[in-house]
Structure formats: C-alpha cells, structure tokens
Design a protein around this nucleic acid. Structure first.
Lengths: 236, 236
DNA sequence: GCTTGTGAAACGTTTCACAGCA
DNA sequence: TGCTGTGAAACGTTTCACAAGC
C-alpha cells in the first residue's frame, strides 16, 4: 500500500489529501467516530491518546485505528500515541469540517424542526440557514433557535441557496415529495443532499447523497434481537 | 459484541439463515431497503419483480439482490422473478417485523418528540408505548399522536417496561446521560437499544445496540462533497 | 517498557459466469 | 427468451506480526 512515491519518511508533510489508493468507506465512518471521541478527550484534558485507547472506546482493534489514520498520512508518535489536538485538526481537515457548511432544510415537519433545534450540528460547523415548506400553514412559523429563522415558501428556494451559498440540502419531506424536490435542487447548484425521506432518490453523479431512513434502523435492530433469540434457542 | 455503532463488520452477528454460513451484515441493511421498495410496488399494483428491477431502484446489481435473498432460502421463480407479496412476507419474517415490537422512548426533547409523531414506525409494526423524561417541566406533557400518551418520570421506567412487555428502548437523551440510562435499562430486561445520543454506549453482549449519530451523517456528506471537489480539481 | 506504520496473510463481500428452469 | 440460484473468481477490508522509534 505504501505508494508514497519515493518513500520519503517525513512525518508531517501533506495537510490535505492522501496517499494513492482508495480509502475504505467504512474507514470514513469510523473517522467521524474517532473525531467524536477525541473531542470528548479534550474536555477531559487528555492531550495524547493511543490507537488502543481510541479503539477500545469504540469496540475496535488498535490495528484498525492505525490503519484508518494511515490512509491519510502519518501523524502518530511511536511510544507516545497521537496528540489529541493535532489529530482533531487533521481529521477535520480530512472530513472537510474545518470549514463551515451552509444547509437549507426542506420540510418543516416534526423531524425537520427537531434538526433545526439541534445544537450539535452548529458545533460541528453546519449552519441551517433556512427552512422551507410548501404547507401554507407552516410558512412564517419561527423555527430552531435562531430568533429570526422562519419557515419560507418553496418559491424562495433558489433565492435562499444563492444568497447564503448553500451547499447542502436536508430533505425531511414525505417520500412522495423527495424526488421532485431533488430534481429541483440539482440545477440550483446544490452539492450534497442529506435524505431523511424513506425513499431512494436519483440525482446526477455530481451530487452526493446520504440517506438516513429511521425505520430501517428500527428494522435492523429487530433483526439483531430476533437473530439473538434464535441463536439462544439453538445454543440451549 | 452485539453493537454496530462503528460499522465494524460484525462477524459475531451469528445470523442463522435457512442455510449454514454467516450473512454479510451489509446484506441485512439492503434487505430493509428491498422491503421498502417492495411495499412501494404493492401500492402500484405490481405483483412480480425481477432482481434486476429491484436492484436498479437502489443502485445495486441484479446479482447482489439475488445473493442477498439466497442467504435465506430460494423464493424466486426462474423466468418470472419474485412475487411481491410473498417476498414481503419472507423479508418481514427474516427481519422479525412480522410481529409488533413495543418500545419505550427516553428523552422527550426535540428529536424524541419527532420520533413519537412519526407514523412510519407504527406501519412497520413498532409501537412507542411510553415516553420518559427526567426533566420535571416535560412530565405530563402530551406527546405523539396517541391521545393518552404523556411524558412519564424516570421512576416509572421499570413499571412501563414490565406492563407493556417492552423489548426496545429508544435513547434520545444528551450524550452524558446515555450510558447511565443504558445501565439502568439492561437489568430491566430490555433486548435492544436504538441510540441517538452522540456517544458510544457499553452494554452486555445479550443486548443489541444500533447507534444513529445524526452529526456523523452530516460529516460523511461533507467528506463526500469535499472529496468530489478535490477529484474535479485534479481531473480538470 | 511503550508506541506507530505497514507489508502480508486472513477474512469478508461482491461480481462474474453459467447451469437449470419456466 | 428471460429469469433464478450458485460456485468460483475478483475485489475490498481487517487482522496479524514485526521492524523501527520514543
């Protein structure tokens, strides 16, 4: 894997991208979790952490942690571990969360309003700059924590995206509205869609989509519980 | 370890299908998506579907769909495809959603209330039978759609779990409250925890945990967008 | 002692290719 | 023809084991 062209062993070189080769997508998911744990470490005034400690908190092996980080460079110190602040900065840079991202929320129903009120996104650098709904009853309602934030009609979508340089759309609409909204978002220059509608949406390859179907998580849990029960019956 | 908070390919997910051998955990996730698409098919009065059609709707190959289903037996018809009603029944049986599951929700904040109001879970057979919070201001508040459902104090947790035969707990509490609540749930006989708190929780192997960290999904989307932008710059 | 980074081996998952059937 | 089910090959990911460094 070490296609570090010349094999130059300088430990602190590239801030940005990575070495050659694709990064396992499970590694990306874990990177987010490492970051979460590291941020917790900072609060506890711990300034170094080993791959073993970090892995243990998430049920992973130390080798897994090291490999994941190694895809993006070398930033550990043998015999010491990783410096928490430095690793946080590196992971944020890798994930692209060392900048702020502006998002527009579509669908000010129960879930949409819950997301608008969640402070965690703000801390991570995500700003929901507008909420949009096509239900006339909801328009003008104040939502979220930002005092001035009110629900806007769908007609103002283009204006809002342009005005705030919005890159991300959060879809919290019913399943039957998701695709037509996605079709509307694409030509407006949106770069990514976080889709909470329980349906697959189709967009050009230039747009990234991440889907979160809450019912699917319930079902997966049901399966795990059922499988465990079956295993117990078989085992004794 | 019965938890999948990390995306670790849990080889310990001892799934006992019709045949021998473990089932890839990605296959389980896809099974939920197949079910979702199939339910949509029923509404459109389509009664058979091929692996190719099903895969196309989700961006998967036909071989993938067939393999996933084949882990649990053979229920397709060569030359025809799969019968929609039959396949729905089979997948529900596999996932354990051919029965109803009772859940208690802990933390009646914004997200908790949003989940209480979402009809999709009910349709899938999940019943949130009680909402619990330790904030005195919230106790007694009416939540969700069920007219009688009110927020109960934490003291009534054991009573509620026993009375309704609750198997699943939905954690919608702040990160710092999640672990202590999990510790409290385990001896009460809960079988699975759906954890929306942005922290890893530790429970005995007898309890299944599925974690959903909404901020992590934002971060993953940010990474995907950033990666695409970098790729475009390199490509031209 | 402790740690990281990393080839190589082991393991898991997906894709391929085709026999068999309607 | 069109489809499923499936062994085998290809590919992706994780774990192992250890050299090198603090």
């Amino acid at each position: 894997m070490g296609t570090d062209q010349t094999g130059k062993p300088s430990p602190s070189d590239e801030t940005r991208p990575a070495k050659e080769g694709p990064v396992p997508s499970p590694a990306i998911r874990r990177l987010c979790l490492y970051l979460r744990e590291l941020e917790g470490f900072l609060v506890q005034d711990r300034h170094t952490v080993s791959s073993k400690q970090l892995g243990q908190m998430l049920g992973l092996t130390d080798a897994q942690v090291r490999k994941d980080l190694a895809y993006f460079g070398q930033f550990g110190y043998p015999g010491v571990g990783y410096r928490v602040e430095e690793l946080i900065a590196r992971i944020r840079s890798i994930l692209g969360t060392d900048r702020t991202w502006n998002a527009v929320l579509l669908g000010a129903g129960n879930l949409g309003r819950a997301l608008l009120s969640y402070r965690g996104f703000f801390k991570k650098g995500f700003r929901i700059v507008a909420a949009i709904d096509c239900d006339a009853h909801r328009i003008g309602e104040q939502v979220g924590m930002t005092p001035g934030l009110r629900v806007l009609p769908l007609e103002r979508l283009a204006e809002v995206i342009a005005q705030y340089d919005v890159q991300i759309a959060i879809l919290c609409v019913p399943a039957d509205a998701a695709q037509s909204l996605a079709d509307r978002l694409v030509p407006l220059g949106i770069m990514g869609i976080l889709n909470f509608a329980p349906v697959a949406i189709n967009v050009p390859e230039t747009v990234s989509v991440t889907s979160v179907d809450l019912a699917v998580h319930f079902e997966q849990l049901a399966f795990r519980i059922s499988a465990r029960q079956v295993a117990q019956e078989h085992g004794g």
